[in-house]
């Protein structure tokens, strides 16, 4: 790329920016619901400045050369931000592509009398912008992937809450399928909470687990064993009739584990183990006074 091209772009920066903005604002893909025009303008200035700086640095420019690192940083940030705000891939990619026309206009003016140079320079700028738009696309996808990964982790975290139901008693309602990755999280959360709250009884409630097969049972047994190694007792509650049936039909041995049909009865056992008694108190006299 010739020095003159970079200079031409720099010289016509304001014009280019204006055209580019006009193009973006009239485009049907404009998302003024997701980003206001000032912000769009700021992003455009950021990218154009970075591009001009890169173009000025060298004659033999490729989109992969080191001079383009700052542009890639700017674009990466913009793309990830757009991914987070819910832009579509097309809307994100057109941000870079829409710059093409206004750049070409400026270059065309510069090389009016040299068609051969004009052709070469247009191709060079075109290649760079194409590469940059591919990069934008990649960054956009990466941003989306990050969101998905974060959400998966969040779902895993949220879906395994450890509740302190009483001093020394923890309850852990499990909702959804218990696979080995989830078992790991359940176990880690539970054991950490046992240490943090110094609890000696944990109730694992499986009313929300759709089915218990031998693998799920194995995961449950592992969790109970780990709890016991720490020095706490683990009760499994919420065993529905059909789960009891499958467990027996599959020949799974849960005889070493305390099991209860409901969370309420598990809690009663826990209270019993801790020598706590829950009683009904007659408060009628108080009500009458009021």
């Amino acid at each position: 790329m010739k020095k003159a091209t970079a200079q031409a772009v720099k010289k016509n920066k304001i014009q280019i920016l204006e055209n580019w903005m006009k193009f973006q604002l009239t485009d049907e893909g404009l998302r003024d619901d997701l980003m206001n025009n000032e912000e769009l303008h700021a992003q455009s200035v950021l990218l154009l400045d970075a591009l001009i700086r890169a173009m000025e640095t060298g004659e033999t420019l490729h989109a992969s050369s080191r001079e383009f690192d700052p542009i890639r940083d700017v674009l990466g940030e913009i793309s990830v931000m757009r991914a987070r705000r819910g832009y579509s891939p097309r809307e994100t990619a057109s941000f870079v592509l829409s710059l093409k026309q206004s750049l070409f206009d400026a270059i065309e003016k510069e090389y009016k009398k040299e068609p051969e140079s004009l052709y070469k320079e247009i191709i060079a700028v075109n290649n760079i912008l194409d590469a940059l738009s591919i990069f934008t696309f990649e960054a956009f996808l990466k941003g989306r992937e990050e969101i998905i990964l974060r959400q998966t982790d969040e779902i895993n975290e949220i879906s395994t809450p450890v509740i302190r139901v009483w001093e020394g008693i923890l309850a852990l309602p499990i909702i959804g399928t218990l696979d080995s990755a989830r078992t790991q999280i359940v176990m880690e959360n539970l054991l950490q909470e046992i240490v943090a709250t110094n609890s000696s009884i944990a109730i694992l409630d499986i009313s929300g687990v759709p089915a218990v097969d031998s693998l799920v049972a194995q995961h449950l047994i592992k969790t109970v064993s780990a709890t016991r190694l720490m020095g706490a007792e683990c009760i499994i509650s919420g065993i529905r009739a059909e789960i009891a049936q499958t467990i027996v039909h599959l020949g799974i041995d849960l005889s070493n584990i305390k099991t209860k049909a409901s969370l309420a009865s598990a809690l009663r056992v826990a209270f019993d183990m801790m020598n706590v008694e829950v009683k009904k108190v007659d408060r009628r006299s108080n009500i009458l006074l009021k």
Binding site: Q184, M187, E188, L191, Q192, I194, V195, K222, S225, A226, T227, L229, M230, G231
Partner: peptide, 14 residues
Amino acid sequence: VVVGMQPAVAITLV
């Protein structure tokens, strides 16, 4: 009585 086993150790042993 073995006391104070770390959670990570318990998970690994199991």
